[in-house]
Design a protein around this nucleic acid. Structure first.
Lengths: 203, 203, 203, 203
DNA sequence: AATGAATGAGTATTCATTCAT
DNA sequence: GATGAATGAATACTCATTCAT
C-alpha cells in the first residue's frame, strides 16, 4: 500500500469513525453530511468521493460493528473451548450469545444504532470486504462451530438466522427501552429459549 | 355523537386511511404532511389539529394495524376452540401465531410498515384508545387464553413478549427480503420453535 | 378580487419583475432562486409557491414580453391604418415587423432574453392566461389583419409562423452580436424579404 | 505526425465523439466533464488539457457538425451540376438547402444540439481549424457557387446569412417540436420562400 | 374548526477546477 | 502528458410549522 493509498484509508476511516460518533449521539437523521465531513476534517465533497450517500456509510458501519461483535464472540468461545474441550453445541452457542449480549448491554447506543439489524453484518456480503481488515470469515467460522460436534442438523443456516434474529429483536427493546424487564432478569429465559430453539433444529 | 363530532371523526379517519396508503406506497419519508392533507381532502393546517406530527400519526397507525391483527387472531382461535375445546395451550398459541403470520404474508406492505414493531400494538397503550372502536382489550384476552388451562407459568407476560418479538422479527426478513428462505419452508421450524419457547416458560 | 388575492397578485408580479431584471443583467444561469426571492422581498420558499421552478418563471416572462411586443405592434398598425386606410397587406405586415424590430433594437437585453423564442409568445397558450391582464387575443388580431383584405392565402398561419421565425432569428444575431452587419443596413433587405415571403403565400 | 501526436489526436477525438453522444442523449446541462472524461477513457484532469471548458468543446462540436452538413451539401450540388450544368443559381441554392434539411430531418438530435446555431459553423472561424481535417474552405466554396453565374448581387454574404438563419430557425421548431406542421408539408413553402429571398438579393 | 399563504432553516448533492504526484 | 484525490462554493428544492383570517 503506497503512501497515497494509506492516506485514503485514513480518511475513509476517519469518516466512518466520526459518522458513527455523530449517529449515536445526535441520531442518524439529525446528523448531516456536513456534520460528518467537518468532524472528519474533510470537505463536504470528499464525503461523496468515499461513500455514495448517508445510507451507504450506515450500511458499512452496521457491517463493521456487527461483524466486530460476531468476531469477538468467536474469540471468547475459543478461549472457553480450551479450558473445556467437551462443550456441547448448545453451550457453545450460549457462549456466543452471551458474548454478544454482554457487549450490547454495555453499549446501548450501539444497540440503538444496529436497530435489530444484527443479521446484516452476518449476511450482507456487499459491505464487508472493503471496510474490514479482518481476515476472519465469520460465516465459515460459525459453520465450523456448529458442525464440529457429532450432531446432525435439519438446517444449520436457518438455525443461525433464527437465533440471531431472536437475540437482536428481544434484546433491543430490553436494552433501549428497558422494557418489559431488566436484561439480567431476562437472560435465563433467553438462554433457555436459545437452547430450546437449538434442539428444534437437531435431528 | 353530534353531527359535528361525526364530521371530526370522519376527517380523522380519512387522514389515517390516506396516510397509510401513502406510507405503504411511497414510503414514510417520501410522504409529506402536504401529501397526506391533500389526499385526505383537508387543508395542511387541519392536519395539525388532529395529529401532533408525522410520528404521531404513524404510531396511531401501527397501533391500529397491529391491534387489528391481534384481534383477528383471537377471533380465529375462538372458532377453533369451539370445534376442539381441549386444545393445549401450545396449540392455541400456534393458532394465534398462524393467523398473524398468514395475514402478514398476504400483506407485505403492512409488514414493511410495521417494521418489526408488532409489539407496539400490544404494549403501547397511549395510541390505542382514541383510534379504535374495538372494545376488545387485547392484553386481557391474551392473558385469559394463556391462563385458561391448568398450566402454570414462570412469567406469562415475558413469554408473550418473547413470542411476539420472535415472530415479528423472523417473519420480517422473510416476507420483505424473501431471505433466507421461503415462508412456507420456514413455518415448520417457526412453529416448533414457538412450541419450544412456550415450554421454556412452563413450570 | 379580495384583499388577499390582490396581495398574491402583487407578490407574483414582484417575482416576475425582479427575476426579469436579474435575468437580463446577471444572465439566467447566474441568477439563483435565492437572488430572485430576496430581490422580490419574499422568502425562498415563497418563490416555489408561485412558480414550479426557474424554467416556469422564464416561460411566463417570455410569454409576457413577446406578447407585449406583438400587442404594441398591433396598436401601431391601427394608428397607421387610420391615416392610410387603403394599405395593402404586405405593408401592414411591414408595419407590424417594423414595430417589433424597432422595439427590439432599443432593448438588446430583451432580444438576448427572448433568444429567438418570439414565437413562444405567439403560440404557447399555456403561459398566457394567468400572467397577462391584456384582453387582446393576439392570434385572433393577426388573423383579422391578414384576412381583412381581398387576398386569399395558401396557408395564413404558416405564413405568420415563417415571418415571426424569420424576423426573430435574423435580427437576433444582428442586435446581440452586431453581426454580420448593422440593423439599419439590414432593414431594407429584411423588409424586401418579408414582402417576398408574403407573396409566396398569396394565391 | 509522430506517434505521440497521433495519440493526442486520438484522445481529442474521443473526447469530442463521446461528449457529442452524451450531449445528444442526456442533454448538455446533464452531462458533466466527469461523464465525458470517463466515457472517453481519460482522467478528469486530462479533459482540461484539451479543452478550456464545456462551452469550448460545445463550440468545436457545433463547428464540426455544421461544417459537415455544409460540405456534404456542396458535394451533392457538384453531382447535380454534372448531370445538369445549366442550373440557375436559385435552384443550386435549393439543392444545397434540400441537402441540409434532409440531413437534419434524419437526425433530430443534431437539430436540437445545433439549436438554430447553424450559422456558427459558417461564420465562426475560431473553432474550425483545429478540429477538422477537411481542407475544403466552406465559405469560399459557397462564394464560388453564388458567383459562378451571370447574376449580380446586392450583397451575397448577407443573402447567405439570411438564408442559413431562415432555414435553421424555421426547420428547428418543425423537427424538434413537430410544430406548426409536418416538414414535408412545409418544404414547398420553404423552397418558394428561399427562391423569393434569393430574388430580393439579385440586382 | 378550517384554511392556505408564508416562512426560512435545512440538506443533499453536483461539479468545475486545481495541483501534487 | 496524465492522473485522480480533494476541494468547497453554489444551488435547487422541501417541508414542518405557524397564524391571521
Amino acid at each position: 500500500m503506497g503512501k497515497a493509498e494509506e492516506n485514503k484509508q485514513h480518511k475513509r476511516n476517519s469518516l466512518l469513525t466520526q459518522s458513527y460518533n455523530l449517529f449515536t449521539t445526535k441520531g442518524i437523521s439529525d446528523t448531516s453530511i456536513s456534520d460528518i465531513a467537518s468532524k472528519a476534517g474533510v470537505a463536504k465533497g470528499t464525503f461523496y468521493f468515499y461513500f455514495k450517500d448517508k445510507q451507504d456509510i450506515i450500511n458499512y458501519l452496521i457491517a463493521r460493528k456487527s461483524e466486530g461483535l460476531l468476531v469477538k464472540a468467536i474469540d471468547n468461545l475459543k478461549v472457553a473451548v480450551q479450558t473445556n474441550p467437551e462443550l456441547p453445541v448448545e453451550e457453545k452457542i450460549i457462549i456466543l450469545a452471551d458474548s454478544i449480549i454482554t457487549d450490547l448491554s454495555k453499549d446501548p447506543k450501539l444497540v440503538k444504532f444496529l436497530n435489530r439489524n444484527l443479521n446484516l453484518g452476518f449476511y450482507v456480503k456487499a459491505y464487508m470486504d472493503e471496510s474490514l481488515i479482518t481476515t476472519v470469515n465469520v460465516q465459515e467460522e460459525y459453520a465450523k462451530i456448529i458442525n464440529s460436534c457429532g450432531d446432525k442438523w435439519r438446517d444449520d443456516k436457518l438455525m443461525l438466522y433464527t437465533i440471531i434474529e431472536f437475540i437482536s429483536s428481544t434484546v433491543h427493546s430490553i436494552i433501549v427501552d428497558k422494557l418489559p424487564c431488566d436484561l439480567n432478569e431476562y437472560k435465563p429465559y433467553l438462554f433457555d429459549s436459545i437452547r430450546a430453539i437449538v434442539n428444534v433444529y437437531k435431528i
